[in-house]
């Protein structure tokens, strides 16, 4: 089913018991270039509620990653407002925005970006240590996460000793380390073969089913089809949104 391009709910409408994780209102991202401005994202409004499962798809260059980066607070909108947990992200200092990402947002990248000098265990422990989680709690959480992603026996392995699928599992565990409200993944299966990609997709389904809101950017229709909402973009705009 296709709904209106712009979801309802402007700033300040989150009066329900569980406030929206994200409320983006008319956000636009313009890159000033020597050859003229590039509008990567144009006037998108979007609400992500707790537990949402959203896929963003669309042709290459339509602005999916740019939108995801704004949702993940690593990039700021040129105009429009973006509220995370009801707070206007644009008003936060760089430090507060870092803290927000550390504690509320998990990122999964196409290229994994695990730190090569650290073991799987240490990669997962790292964001917890950074957010000040105590040693004992960290150990318990890391063990739990490794088991959750099915790598309980690979704790001491470095990324170079893991397969692509295993690396992405570690990356997912790392993204979940601080129990974020929102997990963002840009082409999480982009570097993986079909079978491995399906396994990762299943793992992500489980993460969402366990309560974490999730936004995936993907070219892969089979991955998008697993999501409850699918946003299709074109030329920086939302072309359509379907909800299952």
């Amino acid at each position: 089913m296709t709904t209106a391009t712009q979801s309802a709910g402007g700033p300040g409408t989150t009066t329900s018991a569980a406030p929206a994780v994200i409320e983006a209102t008319h956000i636009t991202r313009v890159f000033p270039m020597a050859s003229g401005q590039v509008t990567a994202v144009a006037d998108i409004s979007l609400t992500i509620a707790p537990g949402d499962h959203l896929a963003i798809r669309g042709p290459s260059g339509c602005g999916k990653s740019t939108l995801l980066h704004m949702l993940g607070c690593v990039d700021t909108a040129s105009s429009g407002t973006l509220l995370f947990n009801g707070r206007d992200v644009a008003t936060l200092s760089d430090r507060d925005r870092s803290l927000l990402r550390l504690t509320q947002i998990g990122f999964v990248f196409q290229r994994f970006f695990l730190l090569p000098m650290l073991t799987a265990w240490e990669n997962i422990e790292l964001p917890q240590a950074e957010s000040g989680v105590g040693k004992a709690e960290r150990r318990e959480r890391t063990r739990e996460l490794l088991d959750y992603v099915g790598l309980g026996k690979r704790a001491g392995h470095r990324p170079s000793e893991l397969s692509g699928g295993e690396m992405q599992r570690v990356a997912i565990a790392r993204a979940l380390a601080n129990r974020p409200r929102l997990l963002l993944a840009d082409e999480p299966t982009g570097e993986l073969d079909r079978t491995t990609g399906d396994q990762i997709a299943a793992l992500l389904d489980r993460v969402n089913a366990d309560g974490t809101a999730m936004v995936l950017v993907t070219h892969d229709p089979s991955l998008a089809d697993r999501c409850q909402r699918v946003l299709t973009m074109r030329d920086g705009r939302v072309e359509s949104e379907t909800t299952r």
């Binding site: 690593v74 760089d94 870092s98 790392r174």
Partner: peptide, 16 residues
């Protein structure tokens, strides 16, 4: 640079 940007995305502060 990729690793560093990823760490920043994961919430590591600029100071860190």
């Amino acid at each position: 640079l990729g690793d560093i940007a990823a760490l920043r995305a994961l919430g590591f502060s600029r100071g860190r």
